[in-house]
Simulated scan of single mutants.
Amino acid sequence: MKKLVLPLLYVIVISCNPNYGQLSLVTRLPKELKENSGIAITAQDSTLWLINDSGNKDHIYRAGFDGKMLEDIKVKHAKNVDWEELTKDDDNNLYIGDFGNNKNKRDDLTIYRIANPETAKDEEIEAEKITFYYPEQKDFPPKKKHKYYDAEAFFYLDGYFYLFTKNHSRPFDGISFLYKIPAEKGHHKARRIGEYTFCTDKDQCKVTAAAISPDKKTVALLGHDRIWLFSAFENDNFFEASVQETIALHHASQKEGLCFLDNNTLLISDEGKGSSGRNLYKLELGKVKN
């Protein structure tokens, strides 16, 4: 029996002292956000907006940095087929990316625009629908080696959406395509303007969220255990940026939420799994170690 005591105590200590690597824990998110898939900030008031992905309600949520649920708003005229990302424009209108497409079968890719939810007067808010398609995709689904048409990452910039695809190719080749879509009502052809090969590890090299800094000088992309930064770009093909950096987080989980708190600080969220995850983290870019 004595041989079993130390390992058991060791397990208890480890579980009570989780290691978040380079991340700092801000809070555990409310239980309603177990499958959170996108985050955005519209005010510097220690709160943020969140969405859940497929199989959940057509709602947006506001939670505090203290982990408390503050608002639960139904999005009218919208359906959560697979909500995967949340971003905002300069007027704090929110955009929900309903373009999750793991099997590459969808022909109803949608972005929902809702007015700044801080102005909502009740527990419902109207959505305006924007749709788009990838002109390169001819088959639904395409062959396994061409499964490039899923996405979980986009942001708004100067009247356009910039969308980064999530690769499901087999064999996995690590490519993410960058598409540009007008941020206006209508049915749009997404224009491919760049591509980047991250690496060929299918567990580590898929893009799950995107954000651009408030000063519009840095683009951040999220993976389950790392962040990719692109800066000093001269045009909107951010993959051609002259400064590129990969930050190992030393913490792996199903991270899908990403936004900038300020020009030097990222907020990151992950989905819950058992007793772990469903957390909001902070990453201070000036303090990271590679």
Rank of each mutant, 00 (worst) to 15 (best):
T47S: 12
R113T: 09
T42R: 07
D90R: 15
F132P: 01
L33K: 03
T27A: 04
V13N: 11
D90A: 14
N279A: 11
T197L: 15
K79E: 14
V11N: 13
K88T: 08
A190I: 10
K147F: 06
G64C: 07
P142H: 06
S176K: 11
V288N: 10
K3R: 14
T27C: 12
K189F: 10
D236F: 15
L94M: 00
N93M: 03
L86V: 02
G38S: 11
H251S: 06
Y196H: 13
A78D: 00
A127K: 05
L157D: 14
N101Q: 10
L50A: 15
Y148G: 00
D108N: 14
H250Y: 13
T42D: 09
A232P: 04
W83L: 02
I60Q: 02
V5Y: 13
G223D: 06
N80H: 06
I114E: 02
K289C: 12
D139M: 10
Q44I: 00
V75T: 02
I51M: 01
G55R: 03
P117Q: 04
F140A: 08
Y95R: 07
E245K: 15
T165E: 04
G274V: 07
G194Q: 14
S37H: 08
N167R: 10
F177C: 01
K289Q: 14
L6S: 11
K217I: 01
P171S: 15
P182L: 11
I212V: 08
G274C: 11
R113I: 00
D82V: 00
